[in-house]
């Protein structure tokens, strides 16, 4: 497919089809544009933000002087952990039911598939509204990390269900048949044979959801609130890193710190991606 042609030959072959040459230029131009914009975006953030990161940016307590990100990072971690605690078992169990129990063509699977696709397509602002109406007001949780986490649980559920489902489907049936053949029950087969084989796919889904949680703003402003201090418990309100940046930038008084926070967020995204690559690689070779 990739035969080495020198430039002249290439030019000759395109001379007869100007359409092809045009397309080739379009393809290259688009790629340059896409990655150019990405590079520019990242450089812009880093150049604006990096000079404003100092030790005091990571001070334990938030004050108006240091605009510390530490409480925000802790809040983000708490929200992430809590959401995963709810969403991961729910999502994985649903996927198990869909793949291992329900028939492939059953009506129920169809319904669930439609609802997960619907959930995945709902904009985060609607989750925010719903979370505020339901968890904050109706359930009486108030603005709290818990309310925020529950809202995000619903938000990342479809992602986990879908990726787990795909991972389970990718486990060859021979594994299951072998296990049954040795006399294991269905439950044992699922937990001992199928799930371990599907771990990399499931982890990929979980990492993707961590990324979504870290970047979320609209759904959390109305549920977790914007308190900048360290959280006392899961019932206290707190701002995640993305909201921290949003509030810092909003009144125009802390723009430099907002950019510094953006750099940290960016770093977070890069780390998550690197981690998922590492996992994928490790499991593929193993």
């Amino acid at each position: 497919m990739k035969t080495m042609m020198n430039v002249q030959q290439k030019f000759l072959s395109y001379k007869n089809c100007p359409g092809s040459a045009m397309l080739r230029i379009m393809v290259l131009l688009s790629a340059v544009l896409t990655f150019g914009v990405l590079l520019f975006l990242i450089l812009h953030i880093v150049v604006q933000g990096l000079p404003h990161i100092s030790l005091s940016t990571f001070a334990w307590n938030y004050t108006t002087e240091n605009a510390s990100v530490t409480p925000a990072i802790i809040n983000t971690l708490v929200i992430t952990l809590l959401s995963l605690c709810f969403a991961a078992p729910l999502g994985i169990f649903s996927a198990i039911y869909l793949v291992e129990y329900a028939g492939k063509k059953s009506r129920f699977v169809e319904i669930i598939r439609i609802t997960t696709v619907t959930l995945a397509g709902i904009p985060s602002i609607i989750y925010g509204l719903f979370g505020m109406l339901f968890f904050v007001v109706s359930c009486g949780l108030g603005f709290s990390l818990l309310a925020g986490s529950l809202t995000l649980t619903i938000m990342i559920l479809p992602l986990i269900i879908r990726t787990t489902e795909e991972a389970l489907l990718a486990v060859p049936d021979i594994f299951r048949e072998g296990s049954y053949g040795l006399g294991a029950g269905k439950l044992r087969t699922i937990f001992r044979i199928v799930l371990p084989a599907a771990v990399p796919g499931i982890l990929a889904g979980i990492i993707l959801s961590v990324g979504r949680i870290a970047g979320e703003t609209a759904a959390l402003v109305y549920t977790a609130g914007t308190v900048a201090q360290l959280p006392g418990s899961v019932m206290s309100s707190g701002r995640s890193l993305a909201i921290h940046m949003f509030t810092l930038a909003n009144e125009g008084l802390y723009m430099e710190q907002a950019y510094a926070t953006a750099v940290i967020l960016l770093l977070f995204v890069v780390l998550i991606n690197a981690f998922s690559y590492y996992l994928a690689k490790k499991f593929v070779y193993a």
Partner: peptide, 15 residues
């Protein structure tokens, strides 16, 4: 890098 593009929070894009 496209994955990173996908992971950048929308607030950052806004700015």
């Amino acid at each position: 890098s496209t994955d990173i593009l996908a992971g950048i929070p929308s607030v950052v894009y806004g700015f």
